[in-house]
Design a protein around this nucleic acid. Sequence first.
DNA 1: GTCGGACATTGACGAATGTCAATATCGACG
DNA 2: CGTCGATATTGACATTCGTCAATGTCCGAC
Lengths: 119, 119
Amino acid sequence: MTKSLLRLTAVETVACCAPLTKEPLSADAAERIAPLLKALADPVRMRLLSLVASHQDGEACVCDLNDAFDLSQPTISHHLKVLHESGLLDRSKRGVWVYYRVRPTALTDLAALIGGVAG
Amino acid sequence: MTKSLLRLTAVETVACCAPLTKEPLSADAAERIAPLLKALADPVRMRLLSLVASHQDGEACVCDLNDAFDLSQPTISHHLKVLHESGLLDRSKRGVWVYYRVRPTALTDLAALIGGVAG
DNA sequence: GTCGGACATTGACGAATGTCAATATCGACG
DNA sequence: CGTCGATATTGACATTCGTCAATGTCCGAC
């Protein structure tokens, strides 16, 4: 385990919490989960995530993603960094290209927290 | 049912879209859905929503909510307004008190969009 | 080794956000 | 009517955010 046992990452917190509608969310959990939602709460990042998730083999290269937007390359890079650092996207470099893929269970865990479906 | 040409609210858009992981989200849909996520992407608002949703009878009075936070009354009022205007909370005034409740299907629809469970 | 291309980082800037103090509104009850 | 209590609105402020231009880094090819 690379992480300390005391502090949980946002994705870990999501996986361990009762659904929003089940019991009041603690202030502590809310503070840790909010960054995950913030990462999603941008139209460009939503589309990036959706593009990656629905892409062939579940992964996409930055070069593909850049072309899908009318934004500068650094801006896309910035958004990908936000998604990666929040734990939603995994990053892997192969040769000259960098590939992103959705971290497994990240979205389903988040959906379970929001929607209240049984894990 | 597929939607008309008229402008859709955020919640309506959520209900009509394929899951994020199923197909690339359109720029248009992303722009309309993002405010919903933004509304959720704040620790105070997450807790407010959770408090309301898990409260007895599924509704809570502002007076109860104020006491649960170390924030000024106008600040709570502001957050409730954001949640209400985004379509996540319904508002009803009875006598002197104002009650909020989670709009039905809002959270489950949102979860379906994120988590990709079959609709 | 050098060059070129893919991606990241930095710095700057306007726009949006969260918060509070002060004030307004609005209904219930003397 | 006048007041009081519950909630909303306004105005101000510091902080955060999204974006771009410029620049940096890393790697493969020649």
